[in-house]
């Protein structure tokens, strides 16, 4: 019996905000804290908490520095983060496919 795709979902990644952070970091390669906060419309504290969760899971890398006198925090997806994002998207697609198949079967 094949495993249900829901069992493959990673609790760290399967969360709307964290999935959003990872999707942005994947496309941007490197993204600044301010862009994430503006795009996701989160408070600095809330975003910081989600980033800490992802960093502890080694899915992102956080670099802090200065540009002129302005402090900057850059977020990069780690290779493990790339893999986790790909896996999450694959599982989500499988889930949708299964639901659609079940609906088609149920309609008959």
């Amino acid at each position: 019996m094949t495993e249900h795709p829901a069992n493959g979902l990673d609790d760290v990644v399967h969360q709307r905000v964290r999935l959003g952070i990872m999707a942005i970091a994947h496309q941007a390669r490197q993204v600044e804290f301010g862009f994430l906060r503006t795009t996701l419309q989160l408070t600095a504290g809330n975003l910081g908490q989600h980033l800490t969760v992802l960093e502890k899971a080694e899915l992102i890398q956080i670099e802090k520095g200065y540009e002129g006198k302005r402090p900057r925090t850059w977020v990069t997806l780690t290779p493990a983060g790339q893999t986790a994002l790909r896996a999450e998207i694959a599982h989500l697609k499988q889930l949708i496919q299964q639901v659609e198949q079940a609906e088609t079967t149920g309609d008959r």
């Binding site: 709307r16 905000v17 999935l19 959003g20 999707a23 942005i24 994947h26 795009t39 998207i89 697609k93």
Partner: peptide, 27 residues
């Protein structure tokens, strides 16, 4: 900029389809 978290057109429940739509929109 419009936020996907506060966008009323996006339901708050995290169904797989909505999550994928969110990923696509952010990308």
């Amino acid at each position: 900029m419009q936020s996907y978290l506060h966008d009323e057109s996006v339901p708050s429940a995290d169904s797989p389809r909505e999550l994928l739509t969110t990923v696509g929109e952010l990308t």
